[in-house]
Design a protein around this nucleic acid. Structure first.
Lengths: 272, 272
DNA sequence: GACGCGCTTCCAGTGAGTGGAATCCCCGAC
DNA sequence: GTCGGGGATTCCACTCACTGGAAGCGCGTC
């Protein structure tokens, strides 16, 4: 076993830019420049060079390679943006594609039934990665974004995903300092652990004012044919709305519908 | 001027794999192996090596680089699939992101109003690139796919996009041999040219049985604040359904709604 | 009109990348 | 239990593709 000195990146952050010694690493660092330190829509050549820590002339050449392939696009003003080909390939990634295709109709139903923000997320590293989001015309007072990440302990989908994650993931997650976003955010490991247990028992998570003031969230787990939790759906509402119970049922119905479409059969669940 | 022997790829096809001499080109060829010659969800190392024309041991190393970064994922069975990071970055590409976010609510409305397949596409190279698709629970009897491409002359969105494309694009497109999918497919350049003119005048395209037997399509153009056509919406129905007129209005309403949301004001349109 | 900033091009030196070959590993067949 | 084979992995000396400082260019600004 072993071999390489294992430099795997767990979540999506980490990795100082200076690691970019080899050519492939440098190519990737160029794309990462659009995400880190802060997401950017467009960057100038110099900015890319600075963010990625690659000498200007080298950056120039490598950016050229990306543009030729379509991974970066050069705008009229000379600045660069991420290119369509990335999007095209991204749409082919299997989890994303299957899950999204299967789930979308149910999410639409859920949206129609509740008229609230509807989310679909999966666990990636130590974050909830948002695969889909329907919001209708209402002003977007939530911070989630398709393709974006949010912490596990302060979002509805996050808690559901964490509750059903392998033990070592839960352990790892709880052993780090958890950020408090609002007074209501739970950051104490033991309390969180109890809460996760509750979520596992109830099959649903209900949160209020833990990430964004004025909004609550109801989330439920989605299982595949092996019974494993692979994603979570949620509905996020203004806290004032008092129709939560109806929403709970709608969220659970959606989660169950998607699970069933993925091949999950309650009876078969845990063991064959 | 000049310099490099200009090896730009126009559409998304072309480029024989042998062009992969430089390291960046090879890295890209590895990703392209998942698209070409035919889309593949997962590939073995050997398969990647063959499809990309890169020697096995080199492929091995480069695939390793992709995996480290997250552009490829190694499955339990040892095969590789495109990785989540591609999807994540793909969701950040500006056209895609802005257009999708703004258009989605209108597409949802359109879907609710018609209960038919709803499409959103843009022009990329010589193809219609599908950005979004809502289908409800009905069986997918259409071939479009989010992230997929279809020809311009045989789809509703395609015709609309072509009709409003720059003259040189229209010229280029019409000077190639056009594939006939069904007896109804128009492949004669002059006829197509007249048809494009009609679409520009009417502001809407209606097609029947030109790509897939038994389905029709109604499409309308979406403009941005400069008045340029940047995308197209369509509704695809079974040909039997006789409610086309209602649908025409609904499609146009959606297209206008999105255009307005993008900052388009009718009056400002063509010239300042 | 000339200064400066950011982008582009050049080119000689060299170390990162190459890939054929040997090895390992997993399975299925006998 | 042993053999055979296809795929994945590792190795390493050679060499050529990549590097990056420096010079050149284009354009907006003072």
């Amino acid at each position: 076993m072993a071999g390489k000195p294992a430099r795997r990146a767990t979540g999506g952050a980490a990795l100082p830019p200076e690691d970019a010694r080899t050519l492939p690493a440098r190519l990737f660092a160029i794309l990462d420049a659009f995400t880190r330190p802060a997401p950017a829509v467009s960057l100038s050549l110099t900015a890319i060079s600075e963010r990625s820590g690659i000498p200007l002339s080298t950056t120039h050449r490598l950016v050229g390679e990306w543009v030729t392939w379509g991974g970066l696009t050069r705008q009229a003003d000379g600045r660069y943006t991420l290119g369509l080909r990335l999007w095209e390939l991204g749409m082919q990634t299997p989890t994303t594609r299957t899950l999204r295709t299967i789930a979308l109709p149910y999410l639409e139903d859920l949206y129609e039934a509740t008229r609230e923000h509807v989310h679909l997320a999966i666990l990636d590293g130590h974050d909830a990665l948002y695969l889909e989001k329907l919001s209708g015309h209402r002003p977007v007072h939530v911070i989630s974004r398709v393709g974006g990440r949010l912490p596990l302990h302060s979002t509805g989908v996050g808690l559901v995903l964490l509750a059903h994650a392998p033990n070592d993931v839960i352990h790892e997650y709880l052993s780090q300092a958890l950020q408090r976003f609002l007074p209501g955010t739970i950051t104490e490991p033991e309390e969180l652990r109890r809460r996760l247990a509750g979520i596992r028992t109830l099959g649903i998570a209900v949160m209020s004012e833990e990430m964004t003031a004025g909004s609550s969230s109801i989330a439920a787990p989605i299982r595949d044919r092996t019974g494993m939790v692979v994603a979570a759906v949620s509905v996020v509402t203004r806290t004032t709305a008092g129709v939560e119970h109806d929403h709970e049922q709608a969220v659970q119905a959606a989660a169950q519908g998607i699970s069933r479409a993925l091949g999950y059969r309650r009876a078969v669940a845990a063991r064959g």
